[in-house]
Every structure is written in structure tokens, then in C-alpha cells.
Amino acid sequence: MKSDTVYKRTFNQMLDRIQDCAVGSALPSETVLASELGSSRTTIRKVLNELCGLGLLVFENRVRVVLSHDCASAYHPAVETVSASERLEKLFMEWMLRGDAKPGTAINEAEMARRFAISTTGIREFLNRFSRFGLVEKRPGSGWVFKGFSQEFASELFEIREMFELRSALAFCRQPPEAPSWKRLRLIGEEHHALLDDIETRFHDFSDLDDRFHRLVIHGAPNRFIEDFYDIITFVFHYHYQWNKKSEQQRNRTAIVEHLRYIEALLSGDEAAVEAACRAHLKSARVTLFESMISETDSEE
């Protein structure tokens, strides 16, 4: 149920927020929290009341005061905080990546529904979203076909990505020191270091980490249209170039190092360093994408 998913996601975000505050300090108003977490005041109020019932907060003098950081057991499982559409997107992307899908690959709605435990209606709605961009095509009597990408398509999309991400990166580093995004950025930096240490056996895991890092940056300047369009950007840049398996491990290693420089620049608050790191990483991503597309074309000839 969508409302339940939203509630549980907001609940987990509020637990993160509590841990960013000192015990004994007051949380911001419901209006401020609703803006920070992208939720309604009704949902925020319901979450705060439950947290008071768990003894993590107390309502005093018309404000909620943090009583404890003992939040670990209160979190809802991550799978319960993801909507059906988001879960389908992730599963479909993983299928495309690990299944070595190529342009011309047939996509059967019924088979996808069984594989992902999603209704055929949900599968169809998902595919319709991508059909608007020409990435998949419905063929009467034969289901769907994945069409792949032209260099012109990728080039136009990349121009949009550069505008979106540079704007968001600069906005990210202008956030106040108490913003929850800083803690998330440090944690995702630690994940990068851990993956780099084990890159030889876990290099496939970079796709998910890459997506979460860039989405965190994009959220530095929340914009519903940018975040929705970023789904298409994810599809192309985080999955398409990985069809060329020959140098995937080294590519991912290089991208992790670039991410760590990018993260360091964001944490420094130096806007010139942020712009330089962002542009350097996007330039590398552009080269990687187009080299992959050329390799794919050569292999088909």
C-alpha cells in the first residue's frame, strides 16, 4: 500500500534525523520537518506520535525533545520503504545488467510479472514510461522489445544530466551543517571505501552504489521533475555502458575513486572544488558511455 510505504520511509528518515540531534535538544517544527523529509504534516505528526510512544521523543512545552538515540531496533526493513514502482525499477535494471540484455531483446510482460512478483499492469505501466523515450517498443502480437540507444539520444540526454547535476551539486554544498544529507554523504563515502577494498569480487555492486550517490546529490536541490527524469538517466548511464564487460571492473574502480574525490569536495564546501570534481566525473562518464556504444556497434558488425 502506497501510504504505508510512505509512512515507513518517513519513519526511518525521522529516526536518522533524531540521531543527528543531541539528546535533550528539540526537533524543528512539523512544518520544517515536512519540508526536510518531503512528506505531509499529517504523516510527520503520526510518525512523531509513534516515536513518543516508543520513548525516543517526549512532547514538552509544545515541542518534541529527543530522549534517546537507541533507534536501531525501531527501523522498518528497507524493502518495506520502497514503493512497488521503485522496486520494479530496481529489479528490471538488475535484470538488464546481469542478464546481458542487448538491443532487440524481447520483454514478455507475463514472464516479467512472474519473475518480479509484480502485476502485469504494473509491468505495463513501467514499460510505457520508457516507451515515451523510445527505449522500449510495443509490438502487436509479440510483446515488448528493448530498442537500445542511439548516440544522438545519449548525447542529448547527457547535456541534461550535466545541467541537472552541476546545479544540484552546488546546492548540496550550500546546505546548513545540520542538514541530514551530510551524514548520509559520509556514510555513502564509507561504502565507497569498503567496495574499493573488495572491488575484485564485488564490482557488480557498484551500480546500486552509483545510483544512490547521484540521487543523493540530485536531492541537494529537490525538484520533482528532475528526480523523475533521473530515472531515464539511471537507465542509460548506470546500466547501458556495463554491457561492455571487458573493462567493467577497472571502469568501476576508476568511478569509485572519482566519486571519493567528488564526496571530499562536497564535504569541503568549496564550490570551485565541487564544480571541478563534478565536471571531471561527468566528463569521464561521457567518455565511458560513448566508448561502450562504439564497442557495442563494432561487436554487432
Rank of each mutant, 00 (worst) to 15 (best):
T81C: 15
M96F: 11
R98H: 12
F92V: 09
I123C: 03
E80Y: 04
R87S: 14
H76G: 00
T120S: 09
D70A: 14
A110P: 04
K102Y: 10
G134S: 10
A74N: 03
T120Q: 11
F133R: 06
K90V: 10
A113V: 09
I107G: 05
T81I: 07
K138N: 11
A117F: 02
F130A: 01
W144H: 01
N128V: 07
E109L: 13
W144T: 03
R87H: 11
L67N: 03
F130W: 05
R132H: 13
E86T: 10
F133N: 00
S119V: 04
S119I: 05
C71D: 02
R98V: 09
S83F: 09
A72I: 01
S73R: 14
L67H: 05
K147D: 02
H76F: 15
E137T: 05
R129K: 09
S85E: 14
V66Y: 02
M93E: 13
D100H: 13
S142I: 08
E109T: 15
G99S: 12
V82N: 05
I118Y: 04
R139Y: 01
S119R: 08
F133M: 02
W144M: 06
T105Y: 07
Y75I: 00
K147Y: 05
A101I: 08
R114L: 15
D100A: 14
P103S: 10
S73F: 10
N108Y: 02
R87K: 13
P140E: 10
L97R: 13
A74G: 00
R124E: 07
P140A: 08
T120F: 05
I107P: 01
L67S: 03
G104D: 11
T81S: 06
G104E: 09
L67E: 07
S142A: 13
E125G: 02
